[in-house]
Nucleic acid binder design. Structure first.
Lengths: 224, 224
DNA sequence: CCATGTGAACAAATTCACAGCA
DNA sequence: TGCTGTGAATTTGTTCACATGG
C-alpha cells in the first residue's frame, strides 16, 4: 500500500468503475467476488483490479475474494462519496438543464443546489426544482447555497469569464463542458470534458477501418 | 512518420484538441503557429505536439512552425471529419434530447438524422427538428436514415438490449452514455462515457485536498 | 488449496536534447 | 538563426508470476 495521494486520473476512473460494478453486484445479492470474476463480468483486468485496490489497503481475503459491501464502502470513502457535494450549474442551455435534471433524478452524493444563467428570458424560470438566478449574482448564490463544485455549461466564448467568476465566487472544483482550455490554479481541481471529442474518436476509427486497416490493429478499449 | 493505424485514445483526443485550437487561431486570422506558441496558448506540451503530429507526416516548416489552415485541414482529414457522419440517438430523455439539440445548433461533421424512444408518450413528439420514432422500428429507421453512429442515452437497465438492437440495426459505431460495461465486437468501435465519473474524480481530489495532502502532490491535468 | 498482494519484467507514453533543414 | 522532427532517456502504467496468508 502506498500513500493515497497523487493517484492518476485513469486509476481514479477505474476505481469509479469498480464501485459502479460493486453496486450492481450488491443489488444482485452477491456477498463476495474475486478479482477474476469481477474482471470477467465487467470486461476488466484482474491483476489490475488487485493492483489498484492494493494501492489503498488490504481489502481482500486471500482464498476468497473481496466482500462486496465492504469494498464498495471503502471505495465510496476513498472517492469522497460518503458526504454530499453541492453543485452550482452555470449556463442553463441544452446540456446545463439536462445535467440539472439528470442529477435530480439520481442524486447519488451530488446535489445541484443552484442554477444561474445570464439570459434575461431564462432568469426566474425553473429547471427541475430550481429557480434560475442571474449570473451576476453568482457570488451571492454560491455563498447562500454552499455550492462546492461548479459545472460550466456555457458557450465557448463565455467560458473563460464564467470560469473566473466561479473561482471568484469561491467554488472548490469545476467541471467544464465548454470546448476551451482553461488555465486553472493548482488549488482548484478543474476537469474539462468536450463531448464532441468522443464523436471525433469514433469518426477516426471509422475512417481507419474504411482505409483498409490491413496489418495495423485498432485497439482502443471502450473506456468504461 | 509511422502508419496511421493503432493510434491510442489519448493521442487521438489530443489531435482533437489541437484541431479545436487551430480553428480558433484561424478565426483570429493567424497564419502560422509554432509548437511552442500553441503549447503556451492552450496549456499543452510542445514536444508532445511535435511528436503527435510527426507521427502522421511532416506538416511543419522548420524555423517557422505550422501553417494553421493547412494543419487544420490535415487533422480534419485524419480524424475523418471531412465527410458528414449521420447519428441516431436512442433514448430521448434529459441527456438524449440535449444531445440532439446540441448537435443541431453546431453540427460540425455530425448530423443527427433520427431519434428513437420506447416511451409511448414521447413517440411522435419532436426533439429539435426530428420526430421521435418507436424503438421497435430502429432497424427500419437506421436503414431509411442511413445512420452510421448510434448514441445510447438510455437508463442502465435498458442499455444492453438497446446496444444489441443498434448493432443488429447495422450501425458502425456507438457512443454509450449509460453506466454499464458493454461487451462490444471488434468490428464496431464503441466508446463508453459515464458523466458521473467526472464528478467522482473531482470529489476524490477534494477529499485528498481536505485530508491534508502533506507531501504528496495531486497532479491531474484537466484533460482538455 | 485459492485468491490476494507484490516485486520484477515488460510495455507504453512522455520528455529531453539535439541533429537537420528552411 | 529558429523551429521541426526524432532517437534516446526517463517516467509512468500494465502484466506477469509467485510468495503469502486466510
Amino acid at each position: 500500500m502506498a500513500d493515497p495521494h497523487d493517484v492518476s486520473s485513469v486509476t481514479l476512473n477505474r476505481l469509479s468503475l469498480y464501485l459502479r460494478a460493486l453496486r450492481q453486484l450488491q443489488l444482485q445479492g452477491e456477498r463476495t467476488i474475486s478479482s477474476l470474476a469481477l474482471a470477467e463480468r465487467y470486461h476488466l483486468s484482474a491483476p489490475q483490479i488487485r493492483k489498484d485496490l492494493a494501492r489503498f489497503g488490504e481489502f481482500g481475503i486471500r482464498g476468497v475474494g473481496y466482500d462486496v459491501g465492504e469494498l464498495a464502502g471503502r471505495l465510496r470513502g476513498l472517492l469522497g462519496l460518503d458526504r454530499e457535494h453541492r453543485l452550482v450549474v452555470v449556463g442553463i442551455g441544452n446540456l446545463g438543464s439536462a445535467f440539472v435534471r439528470f442529477l435530480e433524478d439520481e442524486p447519488g452524493s451530488f446535489r445541484v443546489v443552484a442554477a444561474v444563467d445570464n439570459d434575461r428570458a431564462k432568469i426566474g424560470r425553473r429547471v427541475g426544482s430550481l429557480v434560475i438566478r442571474p449570473l451576476a449574482d453568482l457570488a451571492a448564490v454560491v455563498a447562500e447555497s454552499g455550492a462546492e463544485i461548479g459545472i460550466l455549461t456555457v458557450p465557448a466564448r463565455a467560458a473563460d469569464a464564467n470560469y473566473r467568476a466561479l473561482l471568484d465566487a469561491g467554488v472548490s472544483a469545476v467541471l467544464n463542458f465548454a470546448p476551451v482550455a482553461l488555465a486553472h490554479p493548482d488549488s482548484v481541481p478543474t476537469k474539462s470534458v468536450d463531448l464532441r471529442i468522443y464523436l471525433e474518436e469514433l469518426a477516426f476509427q471509422l475512417a481507419a477501418q474504411h482505409l483498409g486497416a490491413a496489418g495495423g490493429e485498432r485497439r482502443l478499449p471502450d473506456g468504461g
